[in-house]
Amino acid sequence: MTALGGVARGPAISIAGLVAGALVWQLIGAHTQASSFATFTATCSALWAMTKSGELPRALESSLELFAIGLAFAIVIGFFGGLLLARIRVLRIGLEPYILMLYATPMFALIPLLLSLFGFELRAKVIVVALFGVWPILINTTEGARSVNADLLEVAESYRSNERQLWRHVIIPYTLPYAMTGVRQGIARSLVGMLASEYLLAATGLGNLILTYTNRFDTAHVLAAVLVITLLATILMGIGRGIENYFARWKAGV
């Protein structure tokens, strides 16, 4: 086998795997009813139709808006809350078990409560998305801010650093990689929150697409929507990993 053949072999197998997957999809679809499992080609044309009609772009925009606002809140509250918890010992010790409990609880269970407090609309859904995503950010930030190398703190002290300078030059830069790991996890959770809120509260966006077309037994459109969500999620997770790696690049030596 030539060298080029060797290099091309790996990706070639991956592509072969993808093609095989599409083929299997097509075959299953061809042997079941459209109301159970649409073929790959039917899904693609449904995807195309939704895009052309503007239905998909609108749904995407709505969902992304919800996701972005909710995640933004989760990041801000998670990051600064984490720093606060690292700073104030009593607060951290006191709240720690409850935060860990909330981290392990499916936030879905809180949606009816939130519904009764904040309604159906965007405001409530943003809160849901934020609640889904905030816990890993909060926990990781606190852990990071607390684990600053004692040696580095000593260096700062020897240069007569005041507290504000300590945060700015030492603690926050040290914490950022940890926070970004939390953000990556938060992205995944907030995506679930986005869909869950679209299922349980006012149906909009991609969740609405899925629900509506499921009710119409239109698997082609449903699978197309799932495909879009998967693609969106993969991209967002990729971005999340990228951000995480970027902020951790100086950690090579630590």
């Binding site: 580095l152 260096v155 030059h169 830069p173 040290y174 100086w250 630590v254």
Partner: peptide
């Protein structure tokens, strides 16, 4: 231990 800040 040098005490350099790795992010700087």
């Amino acid at each position: 231990h040098f005490g350099l800040f790795p992010w700087k």
